[in-house]
């Protein structure tokens, strides 16, 4: 130890580094192996500025990401502010059981899953179809115009999107309601009816994000070798066949990765949007797990931190488990996976 600390304290280190550099160069089987620990310490010392750079980001992650994970321990305790997180009494799975026995448990879980399902069935394929369709457009200017227009809504904030929905779907003067009336559909207060919550949420999501979502597929399509298409054409392959056998396989890895991510966040419905679209009239379909967490833990007059944390934790754990299962399956089935 003494030798090490001395080595670290002064110029000896620089000398040693030089020596090791030389040793590395000449290291043959005959030379004694240098200690792994010493090599590690030397590498760390050599990269000390890199570690210094990392300090702030690591501190950020520790404080704002890992501290709340530690704080989530109160899900297994009856949180008492005077005793703190660690000092509060353990109560095991009490809060989880309470949540599951809650009469609305089933409704909230199914609302969450249904919203995710709608989004996966309608929201997921549209960007793929859009990318395939765009890829077949020969007119360059038209193509880039469609791209610019369809990407744009992505940058509108959730608040404004929901504000626009409120205006456009207004039963008396909303432009969409008026449009539908032209086709004989009677005016409906879409935001005030539980039955319309899922379609409005999903379709406005498609409107906002389909274009943006197609970028990644277009990128994959642009890397397809033109010669492949030309060769197929010479062999008499139709556009449909080329799309099926050249384009689709090209974007398959992207589809799989995005599908894994989608399923891994199945229970993470867009909280902000649901929260903003929610009102007393559509509560039976719009109450999802995360909005309930907010109500129990923050909005309530008597916030129940432990209970709300337990519900949130339940949600996160389901997500992680789903992600791991899907990723493992995808790895075995297709060799494409997140890790």
């Amino acid at each position: 130890m003494q030798r090490l600390s001395r080595a670290f304290s002064n110029k000896v280190l620089t000398k040693m580094k030089g020596m090791i550099g030389v040793m590395k160069f000449h290291a043959g089987p005959g030379l004694p192996k240098k200690s792994k620990l010493r090599q590690l310490l030397l590498d760390v010392d050599r990269g000390r500025q890199l570690y210094l750079l990392m300090m702030l980001p690591v501190a950020y992650i520790l404080i704002f990401k890992y501290q709340p994970m530690y704080g989530a321990l109160i899900a297994f305790k009856d949180f008492d502010p005077t005793a703190g997180i660690w000092g509060s009494t353990w109560v095991g799975l009490k809060h989880f059981v309470r949540f599951i026995e809650q009469p609305k448990f089933f409704q909230m879980v199914s609302n969450t899953l249904m919203l995710a399902l709608w989004d996966s069935i309608i929201g997921f394929p549209v960007p793929i179809l859009l990318a395939l369709a765009l890829n077949n457009v020969a007119h360059k200017k038209y193509k880039s115009f469609v791209q610019t227009v369809t990407y744009a809504p992505h940058f509108i904030s959730t608040v404004v999107i929901v504000g626009m929905l409120t205006q456009l779907l207004h039963p008396r003067m909303g432009a969409l309601n008026l449009l539908f009336q032209h086709f004989g559909v009677p005016a409906v207060s879409y935001l005030g009816k539980a039955g319309y919550f899922r379609p409005v949420y999903t379709l406005s999501g498609v409107w906002q994000n389909a274009g943006w979502g197609s970028i990644i597929y277009l990128a994959a399509l642009s890397s397809v070798d033109v010669e492949l298409h030309q060769a197929a054409q010479i062999d008499g392959a139709s556009i449909v066949q080329r799309t099926r056998h050249i384009d689709l396989p090209a974007i398959m890895p992207s589809i799989i990765i995005l599908l894994i991510l989608r399923i891994g966040s199945l229970m993470n419905v867009g909280f902000e949007k649901v929260f903003l679209m929610q009102n007393q009239l559509n509560l039976t379909t719009s109450e999802v797990i995360s909005t309930y967490v907010y109500k129990m833990g923050i909005m309530s007059q008597f916030p129940d931190y432990s209970y709300a944390t337990a519900i949130g934790l339940f949600n996160s754990v389901v997500n992680v488990v789903l992600l791991v299962i899907v990723n493992t399956t995808a790895k075995k089935a297709s060799e494409t996976s997140l890790w």
Partner: peptide, 28 residues
């Protein structure tokens, strides 16, 4: 050549998939 790179990446990436949730962050 950044020693511990793999560990740091896991340390960062883990927070993409798992979080303490809304309430513990609010309390923080």
């Amino acid at each position: 050549d950044f020693r511990g790179r793999g560990l740091f990446i896991v340390f960062f990436a883990f927070t993409m998939y798992f979080s303490g949730g809304m309430i513990p962050s609010y309390m923080l």
